[in-house]
Amino acid sequence: QAPETKIVDKSRVACDGGEGALGHPRVWLQIPEDTGWVECPYCDCKYVLKGSKADAL
Results as ranks from 00 to 15, higher is better:
1 Q>W: 14
1 Q>F: 13
1 Q>Y: 12
1 Q>G: 12
1 Q>K: 13
1 Q>T: 13
2 A>G: 12
2 A>P: 12
2 A>S: 12
2 A>M: 14
2 A>W: 13
2 A>K: 13
2 A>I: 11
3 P>V: 11
3 P>N: 11
3 P>D: 08
3 P>M: 14
3 P>W: 12
3 P>Q: 13
3 P>R: 14
3 P>C: 15
4 E>L: 15
4 E>R: 15
4 E>K: 15
4 E>A: 14
4 E>T: 15
5 T>K: 06
5 T>V: 15
5 T>L: 11
5 T>Y: 15
5 T>N: 06
5 T>H: 11
5 T>W: 15
5 T>I: 14
5 T>M: 12
5 T>P: 12
6 K>I: 14
6 K>D: 03
6 K>P: 03
6 K>E: 06
7 I>A: 05
7 I>S: 03
7 I>L: 11
7 I>M: 08
7 I>E: 05
7 I>K: 06
7 I>P: 03
7 I>T: 05
7 I>F: 09
7 I>Y: 12
7 I>W: 05
8 V>T: 06
8 V>R: 03
8 V>A: 03
8 V>H: 03
8 V>N: 02
8 V>Q: 02
8 V>D: 02
9 D>G: 07
9 D>K: 06
9 D>W: 04
9 D>E: 12
9 D>N: 11
10 K>Q: 11
10 K>F: 13
10 K>L: 08
10 K>I: 10
10 K>A: 09
10 K>T: 14
11 S>H: 08
11 S>D: 07
11 S>V: 11
11 S>M: 11
11 S>N: 10
11 S>K: 09
11 S>L: 13
12 R>S: 09
12 R>K: 07
12 R>E: 11
12 R>Y: 12
12 R>A: 08
13 V>N: 03
13 V>F: 11
13 V>E: 03
13 V>L: 07
13 V>C: 09
13 V>H: 01
14 A>P: 11
14 A>Y: 14
14 A>D: 04
14 A>L: 10
15 C>S: 00
15 C>T: 00
15 C>M: 00
15 C>P: 00
15 C>A: 00
15 C>K: 00
15 C>G: 00
15 C>F: 00
16 D>I: 10
16 D>S: 10
16 D>C: 14
16 D>L: 08
16 D>G: 03
16 D>P: 05
17 G>Y: 04
17 G>C: 06
17 G>V: 04
17 G>A: 04
17 G>M: 04
17 G>K: 03
17 G>F: 04
17 G>H: 02
17 G>W: 04
17 G>R: 01
18 G>C: 15
18 G>F: 07
18 G>R: 09
19 E>R: 12
19 E>Y: 11
19 E>D: 10
19 E>H: 06
19 E>P: 14
19 E>G: 14
19 E>Q: 10
20 G>V: 05
20 G>R: 04
20 G>S: 06
20 G>H: 05
20 G>W: 06
20 G>K: 05
21 A>N: 11
21 A>M: 11
21 A>T: 10
21 A>Y: 10
21 A>L: 11
22 L>V: 06
22 L>K: 13
22 L>D: 08
23 G>P: 06
23 G>M: 11
23 G>Y: 09
23 G>T: 09
23 G>F: 08
23 G>N: 09
24 H>E: 02
24 H>C: 01
24 H>K: 02
24 H>T: 03
24 H>W: 04
24 H>D: 04
24 H>G: 04
24 H>F: 05
25 P>M: 07
25 P>Q: 09
25 P>T: 10
25 P>K: 10
25 P>W: 08
25 P>Y: 07
25 P>V: 11
26 R>P: 02
26 R>G: 00
26 R>Q: 05
26 R>K: 08
26 R>S: 01
26 R>V: 07
27 V>S: 02
27 V>L: 06
27 V>G: 01
27 V>W: 03
27 V>M: 04
28 W>V: 01
28 W>L: 03
28 W>T: 00
28 W>C: 05
28 W>R: 00
28 W>F: 06
29 L>P: 00
29 L>Y: 05
29 L>S: 01
29 L>E: 00
29 L>G: 01
29 L>K: 02
29 L>N: 01
29 L>D: 00
30 Q>G: 02
30 Q>T: 13
30 Q>F: 13
30 Q>D: 13
30 Q>N: 10
30 Q>H: 10
31 I>H: 03
31 I>R: 03
31 I>E: 02
31 I>Y: 02
31 I>N: 01
32 P>M: 04
32 P>K: 05
33 E>D: 08
33 E>V: 10
33 E>Y: 10
33 E>C: 11
33 E>F: 11
34 D>K: 06
34 D>M: 06
34 D>A: 09
34 D>S: 09
34 D>E: 11
34 D>R: 08
34 D>I: 06
34 D>P: 04
34 D>C: 08
34 D>Y: 07
34 D>Q: 09
34 D>L: 10
35 T>R: 06
35 T>W: 06
35 T>Q: 09
35 T>G: 03
35 T>H: 07
36 G>T: 03
36 G>I: 04
36 G>H: 02
36 G>D: 04
36 G>C: 02
36 G>W: 03
37 W>P: 01
37 W>A: 04
37 W>E: 05
37 W>R: 01
37 W>I: 07
38 V>F: 01
38 V>P: 01
38 V>T: 07
38 V>W: 02
38 V>Y: 03
38 V>H: 02
39 E>Y: 15
39 E>K: 15
39 E>T: 12
39 E>D: 09
39 E>F: 14
39 E>R: 15
40 C>A: 08
40 C>S: 07
40 C>R: 07
40 C>I: 08
40 C>W: 09
40 C>E: 05
40 C>P: 06
41 P>S: 05
41 P>Q: 04
41 P>M: 06
41 P>D: 01
42 Y>Q: 11
42 Y>E: 10
42 Y>G: 03
42 Y>D: 04
42 Y>P: 05
43 C>D: 00
43 C>Q: 00
43 C>R: 00
43 C>M: 01
43 C>H: 02
43 C>F: 00
43 C>L: 00
43 C>P: 00
44 D>C: 14
44 D>I: 11
44 D>M: 15
44 D>Q: 15
45 C>L: 15
45 C>E: 00
45 C>Q: 15
45 C>D: 00
45 C>V: 15
45 C>I: 15
45 C>M: 15
45 C>P: 00
45 C>F: 15
45 C>K: 15
46 K>M: 06
46 K>H: 07
46 K>R: 14
46 K>D: 13
46 K>C: 13
46 K>G: 03
46 K>Q: 03
46 K>L: 09
46 K>Y: 07
46 K>V: 14
46 K>S: 04
47 Y>P: 14
47 Y>K: 02
48 V>A: 02
48 V>K: 03
48 V>E: 07
48 V>G: 01
48 V>H: 04
48 V>I: 13
48 V>L: 06
48 V>D: 01
49 L>F: 07
49 L>V: 09
49 L>R: 08
49 L>S: 10
49 L>Y: 07
49 L>M: 07
50 K>V: 10
50 K>C: 14
50 K>G: 08
50 K>F: 03
50 K>H: 08
50 K>N: 07
50 K>T: 06
50 K>M: 09
51 G>W: 03
51 G>M: 04
51 G>F: 04
51 G>S: 04
51 G>L: 02
52 S>M: 02
52 S>P: 02
52 S>E: 08
52 S>I: 05
52 S>T: 05
52 S>Q: 03
52 S>K: 02
52 S>V: 08
53 K>R: 09
53 K>V: 12
53 K>L: 11
53 K>D: 10
53 K>N: 07
53 K>G: 10
54 A>G: 07
54 A>E: 07
54 A>D: 06
54 A>I: 07
54 A>H: 07
54 A>N: 05
54 A>C: 14
55 D>K: 00
55 D>R: 00
55 D>C: 09
56 A>F: 13
56 A>N: 14
56 A>L: 13
56 A>W: 14
56 A>Q: 13
56 A>K: 13
56 A>P: 14
56 A>S: 11
57 L>E: 13
57 L>S: 14
57 L>T: 13
57 L>I: 12
57 L>H: 10
57 L>C: 14
57 L>K: 06
